[in-house]
């Protein structure tokens, strides 16, 4: 059966994921070492140890995301996170930075290393280099590849691949996107936040909901229309008397029906996005995908997904897996 890797932003969400059937849970510390550094979210050292014990007692694994890029002079913060993840009993760490991968291979050789989507490794040569140089055992592939491209990669590598199947959709190659920095001075790569809440403001203006990021208006959502996240890549802008979404509509990924194709392409693990989401989201999405991977393993028809109401745009897309660019 393909491994189901599920998000947890809080200990309560971790427990909900385990009880809903997650094979593995990924989470991070409450600081800038992980790419979901949002207020009120993430784990203390004690909470991580308790979460690992809870998951292990029920046969699930815990993967710790330490997937931002250390600032020069501040490397000890990232090194401490690695050591503390190992002490807590983490089954693997998810890393993006070359220096951090080298540090882990040298100082924590028994700690399993996964390559984060933030590293944007999107071809066999890059993946094989990470595997040979740093002992990376699994690669989380960027959300810009088609199923055919994933199959081609898997034919030329000896490590596991993990792909996103549900949730918020980055339309850029992660780790290389600096759009958020232009409006706020902060980015997921360096600070662990895309569109940081400190720079987001909403206002009801007549019948519209205006969303501003760093003072720039990026959406005006009409009354009754679904509200999107305040990200620049899904902003709605006016230029030369035309108004529209430049990069991508505000929709979310749902690749449930592609699970058999992803299995045939050699994918080992399926990832659900959403560490910033509640335990209600985690429980419902994990339960739905656990049923889907079990059906796939048994050769049965996949259940119909009914998760779109939980997603941005309240509509689903298969993203780049079956992309036709406009």
């Amino acid at each position: 059966m393909m491994e189901l890797v599920c998000p947890a932003g809080t200990p309560a969400a971790l427990r909900a994921a385990v009880e809903a059937g997650a094979h593995a849970i990924y989470c991070g510390f409450a600081d800038e070492t992980n790419a979901r550094n949002f207020p009120g979210l993430n784990f203390s050292r004690e909470e991580l140890a308790e979460g690992v014990a809870f998951a292990h007692a029920r046969g699930a694994k815990v993967l710790v995301a330490i997937n931002t890029f250390p600032r020069a002079g501040a490397e000890p913060l990232w090194h401490r996170a690695l050591a503390d993840a190992e002490t807590a009993g983490a089954d693997a760490v998810i890393l993006a930075d070359l220096g951090l991968l080298a540090h882990t291979a040298e100082h924590h050789p028994n700690l399993r290393r996964h390559l984060s989507v933030q590293a944007a490794a999107a071809n066999p040569d890059a993946i094989n280099l990470y595997a040979q140089a740093f002992g990376v055992r699994r690669v989380v592939l960027p959300r810009v590849l088609s199923v055919q491209e994933i199959a081609a990669i898997n034919r030329e590598i000896d490590v596991e691949t993990e792909v996103f199947v549900f949730g918020g959709l980055c339309v850029m190659a992660e780790g290389r996107c600096s759009l958020s920095s232009y409006a706020t001075g902060r980015s997921p790569n360096m600070n662990g936040v895309c569109s940081p809440a400190s720079h987001v403001a909403y206002a009801e203006e007549g019948p519209e909901l205006a969303a501003r990021l760093g003072g720039f208006t990026i959406h005006r959502t009409p009354k009754g229309a679904p509200a999107p996240y305040p990200t620049l890549c899904k902003g709605c802008f006016t230029s030369a008397e035309q108004t529209g979404h430049i990069f991508e509509d505000p929709v979310s990924l749902d690749a449930t029906q592609l699970i058999p194709a992803l299995a045939r392409a050699g994918v080992s693990a399926l990832k659900i996005e959403g560490r910033q989401r509640s335990r209600a989201y985690v429980a419902q999405v994990v339960r739905s995908f656990r049923a889907a991977v079990e059906a796939q393993a048994a050769g049965q028809p996949l259940p119909e997904s009914a998760l779109a109401r939980l997603t941005e745009g309240q509509a689903a897309t298969t993203g780049a897996y079956a992309k036709t660019w406009r």
Partner: peptide, 13 residues
Amino acid sequence: HGAEDGDALFFSR
């Protein structure tokens, strides 16, 4: 009470 997701309630207005 964890019956609904906060982001989903925001998306749906």
